[in-house]
Nucleic acid binder design. Structure first.
Lengths: 124, 124
DNA sequence: TTCACTGCAAAACGTTTGCAAACAG
DNA sequence: CTGTTTGCAAACGTTTTGCAGTGAA
């Protein structure tokens, strides 16, 4: 447990968003200017493998890191790119039944236009 | 409609797999050695935007291009990386009900271990 | 003849690696 | 003291770009 890792964890904890490695790097630099990108990735990858955080692969967007590891789904606004967490009833049983095999996990990303963008359809 | 585009389309049509840009490039080179990677991407991107094919972003894997544009889901083997198409009952209505907003689309990727890998758990 | 598309090379992007020095336990 | 982690720089694989030349209509 190094200072760098503590810092990265605190950044993730304090954020209410899904941060990219780059955003975490930027925020970390503010408090520890000497920190390196490699350190960010080292730690994020280690924590991801340890199941402490979850790496998200979404669309053309850079990978994001989610502090919530419990199974949940994501809502992606196609206009502004905002990602929200949603808790939908688990599909595991339904999926296993349909597929006829045991599943490990699943990722469900729902595309929509968020209320803000729907009201004021700017950008893109 | 150029020869290059025709070639790329025929490669996609003939394949029963989900090809990466690189695989398409390799196959295209066999028939047209002068073809450039940029041309592959130009065409794939154009067709993707036109809705003729679908670009898939899955895990650490390079993007794949799917000739099936109808809504369907994907089954990913965590051992060998094979991607299969699956047709599950549409979740659109259920999702809209839960989210309370109109959805554009959704992506569902199910992780499992395919029958082959389950039988002979080699690799990785 | 015109304008979109090609091929090429170089750049961009996000991520990973190798390594010596620094540090935690 | 020992092994892990850091910071740096360079490499990596994938995708995009700029641009002059080519080819389709």
């Amino acid at each position: 447990m190094t200072k760098q890792r503590e810092l990265i964890i605190s950044i993730l904890k304090q954020s209410d968003r899904h941060l990219t490695a780059d955003e975490i790097f930027f925020l970390a630099k503010l408090k520890m200017p000497s920190i390196a990108m490699a350190t960010i990735y080292n730690n994020l990858n280690a924590m991801n493998e340890a199941g402490l955080i979850k790496r998200l692969h979404i669309d053309g967007v850079a990978d994001c890191f989610d502090k919530i590891v419990e199974p949940h789904d994501h809502l992606l606004c196609d206009k502004c790119g905002k990602i929200s967490d949603i808790q939908l009833p688990s599909l595991s049983d339904t999926l296993e039944e349909h597929i006829g095999a045991e599943i490990e996990d699943y990722e469900l990303t729902v595309h929509y236009v968020c209320p803000e963008c729907r009201r004021a359809p700017r950008r893109r």
